[in-house]
Nucleic acid binder design. Structure first.
Lengths: 168, 168
DNA sequence: CCGATCTTTCAATTAGTTTTGAAACTTATG
DNA sequence: CATAAGTTTCAAAACTAATTGAAAGATCGG
């Protein structure tokens, strides 16, 4: 496979994968494109290479920036804005973890806490089972939360060295 | 909040959450409904409680069964099939992990391995960077794989006890 | 402060996904 | 084996999400 073909393959597969992860296809594709680009790209470059509209590129790049996966760079003497992706994959991964934790896990825990406080006799079997279910989901969520926080703070070396050893 | 209301809230929020996770709303809702149901339910029960069509219930229950999150139970003397959800949340979580690993991570690693073998001079800067990027994503993916395998095999107690301690 | 260049917004459209419902199929029962 | 009870399938319809593109908004240099 030639380099150009391989890059295209990567971009489109990455996009397809993103779909399963609540990330829209185009956002994932733009990210992939920037990941494998040696140089910063402009919005026009992205438009052209992925054959998508200006508005679409703009919205998705902004989203990527809000995830801290992409940043704007100014090139001296150029009017246009350029964009680059964070190339350190460990940083990319921990960044995504942090965002998803904030957007999904935290709200879920909040909900479960509310639902645990359902009215009614705790001796009633129905009520008891419900409260227990909310509690056990919440406990799991909190533990996952701690793991994610731990990993997010950790260095890649520590992850590979210590954590993987503990996990056999 | 009353029990019935709390259950409804749980079912609908769980559905909304599912949406961000590549799981369709109805599948997540059915799962939630079965999770908080004291008794096994029939397809008709689910149809009624969630106001959705027979076909929809059938397809999504089948999908849940293929994820090993729900199982069919036969009740002696009854013609109809009943369904129950796995209530042990740790098992639910590890089961979901296993499925997603199989459906998403494994294919991704396969792709990266192919792309690493791109043609061209490894001294060429473009080629070199691409190969390195594929390699580092692959390494990360393999490590995540190991973590998931470790956690999937582990008991919940071990997870809470040992892993959380290591992570501080 | 003017015009040129570039970026952002958003209503309308298009594409993609989910849901329905009726028909086909399967299985239990008298 | 005929019929009733239950399950599955799938094409069409409904719904949801992504995309476009044109217009409005910024920003820069002179």
């Amino acid at each position: 496979m030639k380099l150009t073909e391989a890059k295209n393959q990567f971009v489109s597969s990455w996009g397809a994968l993103g779909t399963h992860w609540g990330i829209n296809r185009t956002m994932a594709q733009i990210h992939a494109l920037l990941l494998v680009s040696t140089n910063p790209l402009t919005q026009d470059d992205v438009m052209e290479q992925l054959s998508i509209s200006r508005g679409n590129v703009n919205m998705n790049i902004r989203e990527l920036i809000s995830w801290h996966l992409v940043e704007r760079v100014i090139i001296a003497g150029e009017r246009k804005e350029y964009f680059i992706a964070e190339k350190d994959i460990w940083k990319v991964a921990t960044q995504i973890m942090k965002e998803r934790k904030k957007r999904e896990l935290d709200p879920m825990l909040k909900l479960l806490t509310q639902l645990e406080n359902v009215e009614g006799d705790k001796k009633d079997k129905e009520v008891k089972q419900f409260v227990e279910m909310m509690g056990s989901i919440k406990t799991l969520g909190k533990n996952v939360n701690k793991v994610l926080e731990g990993v997010a703070k950790a260095e890649e070396k520590w992850f590979v060295g210590t954590l993987l050893k503990v996990l056999k």
